[in-house]
Nucleic acid binder design. Sequence first.
DNA 1: CGTGCGGCCTGAATGC
DNA 2: TGCATTCAGGCCGCAC
Length: 275
Amino acid sequence: MPELPEVETIARGLQTLILGRCIARVEMLFSGSVQGDRRILTENLTGQVIQGVRRRGKLLLFELSDQMFLVGHLKMTGKFLFFPPGEMEINTHTRCIVHFEDKSSLVFQDQRKFGYLRCMNDTELADWPFFAQLGPEPLCMSEQDFVARLHSRRAAVKALLLDQTCIAGIGNIYADESLHLAGIHPQTQGASLAEEKIVLLYHSLHKVLTRALEAGGSSFRDYVDGLGRPGSYQDTFLVYGRGGRTCRHCNAVLEKTKVAGRSTVFCPWCQPKIS
DNA sequence: CGTGCGGCCTGAATGC
DNA sequence: TGCATTCAGGCCGCAC
């Protein structure tokens, strides 16, 4: 499930691979993977040149000519794969192929069909509610802003980390990992957290995201970057996917519960209920 | 408005 | 063995 570090790794990798390439044709193999007008994607992109590949939250933004953007959300199983000329491989999960003029290609695969592509200009992008309502980037926001956003809410702190309008880019893996590092119980209400605890969480989140970026992301299930390479941060998971096993810090048995409808693992000793 | 939960989708893992 | 159930999870839409 690609979160901030994975999507950032994909964006950086694809940037070097497809910058300046000109789109010859966009081929949709499954129309359900397009949001909005499908014809814009298949008809209006021909001749457009890739000007940049960026990330905002978990969104991948391909910047094109004429203030146009090809926007992609990978959700859980989405992948963007680049293939040099003559090397393209497609399978039953291939949803869309962007053919470039030099015969190289960018393929969108998505087993569970949750992910999507959409094409829009800069104004439409800015007016798109999901994009407009995204919270700040965790690696760019200030400590004070982070404290203010969590301290003013009554929901469970884990639900707040997952709320993309509160903070953008965090998913289940990095929520659990950063809460563990900060020693905070995932069910704790934002408003009842001591300010110094929220500051600690801010720095823990920074640490976890930075290390995950250095590791090229996490490949717990099937994440790979634009060249099909997995990340390695899953080797250092402290809690995610480790329910029932022992805490690497104190040897207590890690508990598995549900918070905000998501499977949640935490250490009952390192992350006590009252913080 | 803030919060919580079901549904979407597929395939791997588990249960009987 | 074979069938049925459970689980994973980002985000939308709905109910309270």
